[in-house]
Deep mutational scan, measured.
Amino acid sequence: TGIVNVSSSLNVRSSASTSSKVIGSLSGNTKVTIVGEEGAFYKIEYKGSHGYVAKEYI
């Protein structure tokens, strides 16, 4: 489990790349469930599926 550490919002992406499609966003202080790691990204549970967020903001 981690907490989103941004002042505005954090993009949730379809894969572990900054060039991948943005599938949603999370507000600061949102609790997320981390299910894996891939490079500079965490794989998280997101809306019944999975998404990826940059580690530096969790």
Results as ranks from 00 to 15, higher is better:
Glu37Cys: 08
Gly36Glu: 06
Val22Thr: 07
Glu56Arg: 12
Ser7Leu: 11
Ser8Met: 12
Ser15Ile: 06
Ala54Met: 14
Ser14Lys: 12
Ser25Arg: 12
Gly51Asn: 01
Val4His: 05
Ser27Gln: 12
Glu38Lys: 07
Ser49Thr: 12
Gly2Lys: 04
Asn29Pro: 08
Glu37Phe: 07
Val32Phe: 04
Val4Arg: 01
Gly28Met: 12
Phe41Asp: 03
Gly48Lys: 07
Val32Asn: 01
Val12Thr: 01
Val35Gly: 02
Tyr46Gln: 01
Thr30Leu: 07
Glu56Ser: 07
Ser19Thr: 12
Thr30Val: 10
Thr33Cys: 09
Tyr52Asp: 00
Tyr57Cys: 10
Gly51His: 02
Val6Met: 09
Val4Met: 05
Ile44Lys: 00
Gly24Ala: 04
Glu45Trp: 10
Lys21Gln: 14
Ser19Leu: 13
Ala16Thr: 07
Gly24Leu: 04
Ser15Cys: 09
Tyr42Asn: 01
Lys47His: 11
Gly48Arg: 06
Ile44Pro: 00
Gly2Tyr: 06
Ser19Pro: 06
Val12His: 01
Asn11His: 15
Thr33Val: 14
Ser8Gly: 15
Asn11Gln: 15
Ser17Val: 05
Ile34Ala: 01
Thr1Ser: 12
Tyr52Ile: 01
Gly28Phe: 12
Ala16Lys: 03
Lys43Glu: 05
Tyr42Ile: 03
Ser7Trp: 08
Ile34Cys: 03
Arg13Gln: 15
Asn5Ala: 10
Phe41Ile: 01
Lys21Asn: 12
Glu45Leu: 14
Ser27Leu: 15
Val4Glu: 03
Val53Asn: 00
Ser20Tyr: 08
Ser17Met: 07
Val32Gln: 01
Ile58Leu: 06
Ala54Asn: 12
Gly36Asp: 08
Glu45Cys: 10
Thr1Glu: 13
Lys43Cys: 08
Ile3Val: 11
Glu45Phe: 09
Ile23Trp: 03
Ser8His: 15
Ile34Phe: 03
Ser25Tyr: 15
Lys43Asp: 02
Ser20Ile: 01
Leu26Lys: 01
Val6Asn: 08
Ala16Arg: 02
Asn5Gly: 06
Gly36Phe: 04
Gly39Met: 05
Ile23Ser: 02
Lys31Pro: 11
Ser14Gln: 15
Lys47Ile: 07
Arg13Thr: 14
Lys55Gln: 05
Glu45Ile: 14
Asn5Trp: 08
Thr18Tyr: 13
Gly28Glu: 10
Thr33Tyr: 10
Gly2Val: 09
Thr18Lys: 11
Glu37Tyr: 07
Val53Ile: 08
Val22His: 04
Ser25Gly: 06
Ile3Asp: 04
Ser14His: 13
Lys31Phe: 11
Gly36Tyr: 04
Leu10Cys: 09
Lys55Thr: 04
Ser49Tyr: 10
Val4Tyr: 03
Ser27Trp: 09
Tyr42Val: 03
Ser8Arg: 11
Lys43Gln: 07
Ser8Tyr: 14
Val12Asn: 00
Ser9Phe: 12
Lys31Glu: 13
Gly51Cys: 02
Gly2Asn: 06
Arg13Val: 14
Gly36Ala: 09
Glu37Gln: 11
Val32Cys: 05
Tyr52Thr: 00
Val6Leu: 09
Val4Gln: 04
Gly28Leu: 13
Ser27His: 11
Lys47Val: 06
Thr30Arg: 04
Val22Ile: 14
Ile23Met: 07
Ser15Trp: 09
Val6Pro: 08
Ser17Arg: 07
Ala40Ile: 11
Asn11Cys: 12
Gly36Trp: 04
Thr18Pro: 15
Phe41Glu: 01
Asn11Gly: 08
Gly24Ile: 03
Tyr46Leu: 04
Gly39Arg: 05
Thr18Leu: 15
Gly48Trp: 06
Val22Cys: 07
Val53Tyr: 00
Ile3Ser: 07
His50Gln: 07
Glu56Lys: 15
Glu38Leu: 07
Lys21His: 12
Ile23Glu: 02
Ile44Arg: 00
Arg13Ala: 06
Tyr52Gly: 01
Glu56Phe: 08
Glu38Val: 11
Lys21Arg: 12
Ala40Asn: 13
Val53His: 01
Ser15Tyr: 09
Ile44His: 00
Gly24Thr: 03
Ser15Pro: 01
Tyr57Glu: 09
Phe41Trp: 14
Val35Arg: 05
Ala54Tyr: 11
Val53Thr: 02
Leu10Trp: 04
Ser15Phe: 10
Ile58Asp: 02
Ser20Val: 03
Gly39Thr: 03
Ala54Cys: 11
Ser17Trp: 05
Ala40Ser: 12
Leu26Asp: 00
Tyr42Met: 03
Gly36Cys: 07
Ala40Tyr: 09
Ser27Val: 14
Tyr52Arg: 00
Leu10Lys: 03
Ser9Gln: 15
Val53Pro: 00
Ser27Tyr: 10
Gly39Asn: 08
Phe41Lys: 01
Gly24Val: 03
Ile58Met: 04
Ser9Asn: 12
Ile3Asn: 06
Ser14Phe: 15
Ala40Lys: 10
Ser15Leu: 09
Ile44Ser: 00
Ser27Cys: 10
Tyr42His: 03
Glu38Pro: 01
Ser19Arg: 09
Leu10Val: 15
Ile58Ser: 02
Val4Asp: 03
Ser20Cys: 05
Gly28Asp: 09
Phe41Ala: 03
Asn29Thr: 07
Ser49Arg: 11
Glu37His: 07
Val22Tyr: 06
Leu26Gln: 02
Thr33Asn: 12
Tyr42Ser: 01
Lys55Tyr: 02
Lys47Ser: 09
Tyr42Trp: 12
Ser7Gln: 14
His50Asp: 06
Ser20Gln: 02
Val35Thr: 07
Asn5Asp: 07
Phe41Tyr: 11
Asn29Met: 13
Ser49Val: 11
Thr33Met: 12
Lys47Trp: 07
Gly39Ser: 04
Thr1Lys: 07
Ser17Gly: 07
Ser7His: 13
Lys31Ser: 09
Ser7Val: 13
Ser20Pro: 02
Val35Asp: 03
Glu56Ala: 11
Glu45Gly: 05
Tyr52Lys: 00
Ser20Glu: 03
Glu38His: 08
Asn11Pro: 14
Thr30Asp: 14
Glu38Gly: 03
Arg13Asn: 14
Tyr57Ile: 04
Val12Glu: 00
Ile23Lys: 04
Ala54Lys: 09
Thr18Ile: 15
Ala40Gly: 14
Val35His: 05
Lys43Tyr: 05
Thr1Asn: 11
Asn29Tyr: 12
Arg13Glu: 04
Ile44Met: 01
Ser15Gly: 13
Gly28Arg: 13
Glu56Asp: 09
